[in-house]
Simulated scan of single mutants.
Amino acid sequence: MMFGQTPVTHVGVDPFNPPNPDVWPATMAPVQQILREGLDLGPVTVFVGENGSGKSTLVEGIAMAYGVNSEGGSTGAMHHSRTTESDLHSGLKLTRNPGSSKYGYFLRAETMHGFFTYLADNPSMGRPDSDYHGMSHGESFLELILNRFRGGGLWILDEPESALSFSGCLSLLSVLTQLVDGGDSQVILSTHSPMLASLPGADIYEVGPWGLRPNVWEDLELVRNWRSFMDAPQRFLKYI
């Protein structure tokens, strides 16, 4: 895998506007750790963890600090429905690579329906977009990625596996790997999928009450749990 000028090298606290440590989301352990220590970003960063651990809060904050729309889309997208995001982005400072691409794109499965409507009402460069509403959830998600994820930039995805089948996840892995191999793209991903967490070259962090814990794919709790279930599902099913 060839690594070049990725857009962002570090995320940390904005010294001129630090978040209130007593107000959510700064009270969450992973956010506290980034505000305290910062986090170096390589070409691929993957966050895994339980629901409510802070994965989505982190990727959303980084996306908004980069200037990407909180509900999905590229830098400059104006789609907005209901304010649910935190103000974490206002307290973050991103260190950028001089000369790297300033383009970014954020995809989050939970806001895709409204985002597709925004794209239909605001065709790019006056040209009609694909009929995303006429496709299945997974088909539309992959079609958008194939249409928009091109060239250099920062590509941020929040739990995209919720829209994708097994083969769809493989297709997404292929697209993201090709982008990063180009040398001027960077991926930040939160996921519950062991398949997507296996993205080549990724720095993987387990997110939880301990903060951010770097780990290798083979030793992730996520991977161990899925292996145990696949080996003997009856051991788990008898408890539900």
Results as ranks from 00 to 15, higher is better:
F3I: 15
F3L: 12
G4H: 08
T6V: 13
P7C: 03
P7Y: 02
P7R: 06
V8H: 01
G12E: 04
G12N: 07
P15T: 08
N20P: 06
W24N: 10
P25Q: 02
P25V: 02
A26T: 07
T27C: 03
M28K: 09
V31I: 14
Q32P: 12
Q32W: 05
Q33L: 06
L35H: 01
R36Q: 15
E37C: 11
G38Q: 01
G38N: 09
G38K: 04
G42S: 12
V46A: 08
V48T: 14
G49I: 09
S56N: 09
L58D: 02
G61W: 08
M64D: 15
M64H: 05
A65F: 07
G67R: 03
V68F: 01
V68A: 13
N69E: 12
S70A: 14
S74A: 15
M78I: 07
H79W: 13
H79M: 12
H79Q: 07
S81L: 15
D87R: 05
L88F: 07
S90C: 09
G91P: 07
K93I: 03
R96S: 08
P98A: 11
G99Y: 10
S101M: 10
S101C: 14
Y103A: 09
G104N: 10
L107V: 08
H113I: 13
G114L: 05
F115Y: 15
F116N: 01
A120C: 10
N122I: 06
N122V: 08
S124C: 11
S124F: 15
D131R: 05
M135I: 04
H137P: 00
H137F: 15
G138P: 11
S140W: 12
S140F: 11
F141V: 09
E143D: 15
F149M: 02
F149V: 02
G152R: 06
G152T: 00
D158N: 13
S165L: 11
C169W: 02
S171A: 14
L173T: 08
L173S: 10
S174W: 02
L176D: 04
L176T: 02
L176Q: 05
S185D: 06
S185W: 02
L189R: 08
S190C: 03
S190M: 07
T191L: 02
T191W: 06
H192Q: 12
P194H: 10
M195R: 04
S198T: 01
L199W: 05
P200N: 03
G201C: 04
G201N: 05
I204K: 04
Y205E: 11
E206I: 05
G208E: 11
W210C: 12
P214E: 03
N215S: 15
V216P: 00
V216G: 13
V216E: 15
L222E: 03
L222T: 12
W226L: 10
F229I: 13
M230E: 14
P233Y: 04
P233A: 05
R235M: 10
K238W: 09
Y239F: 14
